[in-house]
Design a protein around this nucleic acid. Structure first.
Lengths: 96, 96
DNA sequence: TCATCATATTAGCGAATAATCATATGATAA
DNA sequence: TTATCATATGATTATTCGCTAATATGATGA
């Protein structure tokens, strides 16, 4: 067994994926960089709700962002993220 | 983007991993089959707490079980599960 | 500087959830 | 059948969490 602390971090890591809104955001970003209002339109959600989830994703280092004028573009932080998404989706589809 | 419904299922799938107790159970089972009382001892937790989490893992098809006399042995249901665990742990350790 | 646009933050509410305690089920052996 | 052991279930409680509404921040262009 890995150390208790690592297992705790692992649970925290997966907890981020355990919400439909965040999954949709992550999946959208895995296809292309997007600004907040793109995400609002795509997900049909209030801006504040999207921003809140983006903050969580930022704090967990799952996404990064860059500013371009007034607009802030978000993208996935690293390769693991989309690999985790893919692997999970594979499971979901196979066990359907 | 995958269908909305699939993304919902994916979030539900990851939600299961988003709890320290369940992660510890899953990891333990990835190393070997165990009965409830083995898990109680290993995790130092009440039997009812362990059973409740096992029920969730059962319902989500992440674990299966077999009875041998009075004892019920649990194990991981399929290969995806431990691969997801490994991949997640890899991320956690690299971003430490 | 000031108005505007994109994004972030805060407070409050309702829903979901994990642990505990107590009790129930169900298989085994005498 | 009955006592016992392993496991499951139910009720309760405390906490976590995501959304909404309202407001704040902060960069841009006039």
């Amino acid at each position: 067994m890995p150390e208790n602390q690592d297992l705790g971090k692992l649970a925290e890591f997966f907890k981020i994926f355990g919400d439909k809104t965040r999954i949709r955001i992550l999946w959208a970003l895995s296809e292309s960089e997007m600004c907040v209002c793109d995400l609002c339109a795509l997900l049909d959600m209030k801006q504040s709700a999207v921003s809140q989830q983006l903050r969580i994703l930022k704090q967990s280092r799952l996404v990064r962002y860059r500013r371009d004028g007034k607009v802030i573009y978000y993208s996935l932080d690293d390769d693991h993220i989309s690999r985790v998404l893919e692997l999970g989706m594979q499971h979901v589809r196979e066990s359907a």
